[in-house]
Structure formats: C-alpha cells, structure tokens
C-alpha cells in the first residue's frame, strides 16, 4: 500500500518537476502509438469497409487470416519484424531494427487486424435494403460511403479505440524490435519492464500511472468523439 502511494507521489513529482527523460519517453510513446494507430486506421478502415460491403472469391479466406491476426501475440509480431529487419534479413539494408520505426511497424502488425476486422463486422451488418434506400435518396458512391461512415461512427471509433488499446499496452514487440535504447526507443511500457527488473518498483509504478493517464486521455477523447451529441 505504501508503495502504491509512493508511486503515485513519484509520478506527480516526475510530472511537476518536468523530468526531461520521463517527458521524452512519454512523448515518444504517444508519438509511436498515435502514428501506428493512424496508419492502421488509414489502411484498416478502407480495407474493413471494402471487406464488409463486397462479396468476392477469397474474401472469407482473407477474413479468416485477419481474424487470426486479432489474436496475434505481440512477441510473435516482434519476432517476425526482427527477422525481417536483421542485417542479414530481407530488409536489413534499411537499418531500421532498434529504431522507433521498427516499433511502429510491429504495432501496426498487431493493431491492423483489430481495426480491419471490427470495421468489417460493422459494415457487414448494413442491410441490402439500407444500401438500396441510400442509393434511392440520390447518393453517389462517395456520398453513400460517407453516409455509412457517419452512421457507423460509433463502431468505427470503437475499432480505433480497441486498436489503440492494443498498441499502448504492447510491450513484447516493442522490447524486441526497439531494444529499449535510452533516448531512442525507450517507451513507457519497456521502461516499466526495465525498472521492474532493476528493482525500482516505485519508478515503475510511477511510470505505470503516467502510462494509464496517457491511455485514459486518448481514450477519453475518442469516447467523447464517439458519444458526442447523440440525440435522444
């Protein structure tokens, strides 16, 4: 219990004293996670919409792989990206291993299936009749899409939030492909793991509070966006 209070005090201390390193780590965490989820959304949203609205051969197989991806353990994603980026690997020439870009890659790999699958599920539930009605209202294809996106705003934002939850909580892959390098690839989760192994439970706890606050802020913003002005 004392440790908990100590941790909370330390967290407030770190924030108030403007600890440069903690600030840099938090900023990097935020940056990496937001870029990951942004890219996952930019790819996953159109892909999910496409898979939800169309029917073609091989669609079910593709969906199956995406759904398997929902349960992709981050360390497995990390391992794949590591092997891809090894100096001896196929993308070794890019020297991206142990860089924030590598973390972003791993996080996209674990969050893309979530965004895609949940978006697809939402769009699949739109009835034929609804599509017909929207077309009959005089909508162009683009307008139809736009209208559907707005109708499914809640489900889409839920998909984005679920993906974001995954990336901000993720540690295994970030550790493996990032290497937890000081001032370079150290993000909140990997720092927490390191501080725990150093036995600095108070610092680890303080960082965990900062991590939770960051997650809370982002999720709150998305929830606000999701639930805004729902008319009764």
């Amino acid at each position: 219990m004392d440790l908990l209070i100590d941790g909370l005090k330390k967290a407030i201390d770190m924030i108030l004293s403007g600890d440069q390193e903690v600030f840099a780590i938090t900023w990097l965490t935020l940056k990496v996670c937001l870029i990951s989820i942004l890219i996952s959304t930019l790819i996953g949203l159109p892909l999910g919409i496409f898979l939800g609205l169309t029917r073609f051969k091989g669609r079910r197989l593709l969906l199956m792989f995406i759904n398997i991806g929902l349960g992709l353990p981050p360390v497995v994603a990390g391992l794949w990206i590591t092997m891809l980026l090894w100096r001896s690997g196929p993308l070794g020439g890019l020297t991206l291993l142990y860089s924030p870009t590598a973390i972003v890659m791993a996080q996209i790999l674990v969050s893309l299936p979530i965004v895609t699958s949940l978006t697809c599920t939402a769009f699949q539930q739109i009835s034929e009749k609804m599509l017909l009605q929207i077309k009959a209202l005089g909508a162009t294809k683009v307008q139809t899409l736009w209208l559907l996106i707005k109708q499914l705003k809640i489900a889409i934002l839920a998909a984005i939030m679920a993906g974001f939850g995954r990336v901000i909580a993720e540690v295994g892959a970030a550790m493996m492909v990032g290497g937890n390098i000081q001032g370079d690839t150290r993000i909140l989760t990997t720092t927490i793991v390191m501080e725990v192994s150093k036995g600095n439970f108070d610092i680890a706890l303080a960082l965990s509070f900062i991590l939770l606050s960051v997650a809370l802020l982002i999720t709150a913003a998305l929830t606000f966006l999701q639930q805004r002005k729902r008319i009764s």
Binding site: K150, Q151, K153, L157, A221
Partner: peptide, 17 residues
C-alpha cells in the same frame, strides 16, 4: 447528419501528424 464529428476526427489526426 453531423459532418463535424468526422471533420474533427480528421483534423485531430492531421494535427497529430
């Protein structure tokens, strides 16, 4: 229907970028 949600979301993403 409220265009602004998505406009806002989009703006936020741009801001982050």
């Amino acid at each position: 229907l409220k265009n602004r949600y998505l406009a806002f979301l989009f703006a936020m993403m741009l801001l982050v970028l």
